[in-house]
């Protein structure tokens, strides 16, 4: 159109060597997209919070939040929903991270669930997750009146995640209606909600597991040591390698923890998270292993395969 006729940098098609469009590299592009999303939330919501689950994805998301607002600090707190069954090294790492970065970290535990004695061994993974994660999360969001919550979920993780929007609307009772999601065009996100409603925001939607690892390596982002291979006390149950992290782990007859060289591809509650045998004790080793991986990361997650369409069901109920 006419107003571009005098553009300062006309496309120089006539010259011998046409300058190619200098596009951002793959990771830079992902990084910029996530920063854009995070800033959009900070600018448009009254009271946002960043869910911090201590894993590699949370570490990357937090790193991106630091970048988004530099030299300011991220203008929202971190929230960890603690099931009380996380690996001890995770809790240590969580507290160290908040201290190192000088961030406001909120920790929420479902006291009612604790009183009822809910635990992954006796209650089963499904009830434990429902009470100590999903219900607990809803309690925390309601308690603080958060109107937007960042989560580190990625679309490549699971089929129902692949269907989710970047800005995912939740009713006042935190439910997700996957059949009726708001259309989401370009990077123009609809952030409008009525009182009591909220939005879950996924800045890492378009990242893959491999992207996350390459970025961790490139940016030198601190992660929980459990991701690196090490000799750890393991029992094998139904083909899953469970690490005996504390004395609450009840051993069946004849079960004897043995030291094995393992690492974790994904981190959750220790009794529900399977380790993989690996010798990758450096980031380079992990990335190399990733390229040759034949199974998905969530394979080690016992909660995903509880029942048919398991993740979608949990998500409808308010799980992240």
């Amino acid at each position: 159109m006419q107003q571009f006729a005098g553009a300062a940098r006309p496309q120089e098609f006539g010259v011998a060597e046409v300058e190619r469009d200098p596009h951002l590299s793959h990771l830079k592009r992902l990084e910029a997209e996530s920063i854009h999303i995070i800033r959009e939330v900070a600018a448009e919501f009254r009271n946002p919070v960043m869910l911090y689950s201590i894993g590699k994805d949370s570490s990357v998301m937090l790193h991106l939040a630091l970048k988004a607002f530099y030299p300011s600090k991220p203008p929202f707190p971190l929230l960890h929903v603690d099931t009380t069954w996380k690996f001890r090294e995770m809790i240590q790492f969580r507290d160290d991270t908040a201290k190192r970065l000088g961030l406001n970290l909120l920790v929420h535990i479902n006291q009612e669930g604790l009183t009822r004695g809910i635990n992954p061994f006796d209650s089963g993974s499904s009830l434990h997750t429902q009470v100590m994660k999903t219900e607990s999360l809803k309690q925390a969001l309601d308690k603080h009146g958060f109107d937007a919550a960042f989560g580190g979920a990625r679309r490549d993780e699971e089929k129902s995640r692949a269907k989710e929007r970047v800005f995912s609307f939740r009713t006042a009772s935190h439910t997700w209606d996957p059949k009726n999601q708001r259309p989401e065009l370009w990077r123009t996100y609809n952030t409008r909600i009525n009182k009591g409603e909220s939005i879950r925001v996924f800045p890492l939607s378009n990242w893959t597991e491999l992207d996350v690892w390459q970025y961790v390596m490139k940016e030198n982002i601190p992660i929980v040591p459990l991701y690196f291979a090490k000799q750890r006390p393991i029992v094998e149950r139904d083909g899953t390698l469970i690490m005996v992290d504390d004395e609450r782990m009840k051993l069946a007859d004849g079960e004897q923890p043995e030291m094995r060289m393992v690492r974790f591809r994904t981190l959750g509650c220790y009794p529900l998270t399977g380790a993989i045998e690996s010798t990758a004790d450096t980031l380079e080793g992990i990335v190399t292993e990733m390229f040759t991986a034949r199974t998905s990361e969530r394979q080690g997650r016992l909660i995903d395969s509880d029942e048919k369409a398991s993740m979608e069901k949990k998500k409808r109920e308010g799980y992240f």
Binding site: D156, K159, S160, R161, K163, K179, N206, T208, E312
Partner: peptide
Amino acid sequence: LLVDGLEAEREQGITIDVAYRF
């Protein structure tokens, strides 16, 4: 079935919403 990830989609054998694959 690789991409139709929602329960309603699998039951009805149709695609309801966009699935992103990388």
